[in-house]
Amino acid sequence: MSLNLPLISLDELPPSVRLPADFPDGAAMPKFLYGDRVEWKSLSDTDNIDTGVIIGRFYLFAHHQNQWAWKYLIFLDSDSYSRRFCSADTAWEQDLTPLEERNS
Rank of each mutant, 00 (worst) to 15 (best):
M1K: 05
L3W: 14
L5I: 12
L7N: 11
S9T: 09
S9F: 07
L10V: 14
L10H: 15
L10P: 14
E12I: 00
L13I: 12
L13E: 12
P14F: 14
P15K: 15
P15Y: 14
S16V: 08
S16T: 11
V17C: 14
R18P: 04
R18N: 12
L19D: 03
P20L: 03
P20E: 01
P20H: 03
P20N: 05
A21R: 11
A21D: 09
D22I: 01
F23S: 01
P24W: 03
P24A: 04
D25L: 04
D25Y: 05
D25P: 03
P30N: 09
P30S: 07
F32M: 03
Y34K: 12
Y34M: 10
Y34L: 07
G35C: 04
R37Y: 10
V38G: 07
E39S: 12
W40Q: 07
W40L: 09
S44I: 02
T46M: 05
I49D: 00
T51R: 11
T51Y: 10
G52F: 05
G56F: 00
R57I: 03
F58T: 07
L60I: 10
L60E: 07
A62F: 09
Q65V: 04
N66E: 06
Q67P: 11
Q67I: 09
Q67E: 14
W68H: 03
A69L: 01
A69S: 05
A69R: 03
W70F: 00
W70K: 01
K71V: 03
Y72V: 00
L73Y: 06
L73W: 08
L73S: 06
I74W: 02
I74G: 00
F75I: 09
L76E: 09
S78D: 13
S78I: 13
D79I: 02
Y81I: 04
Y81M: 06
S82F: 04
S82V: 05
S82M: 06
R83M: 06
R83D: 02
R83S: 08
R84V: 11
F85P: 15
F85A: 13
C86I: 12
C86S: 13
C86E: 14
C86L: 14
S87F: 15
A88K: 12
T90M: 10
T90W: 10
W92R: 02
E93A: 02
Q94T: 06
D95I: 06
L96G: 07
L96W: 09
P98I: 11
P98R: 13
P98A: 14
P98E: 13
E100G: 07
E100Y: 10
R102G: 00
R102Q: 02
N103G: 01
S104P: 15
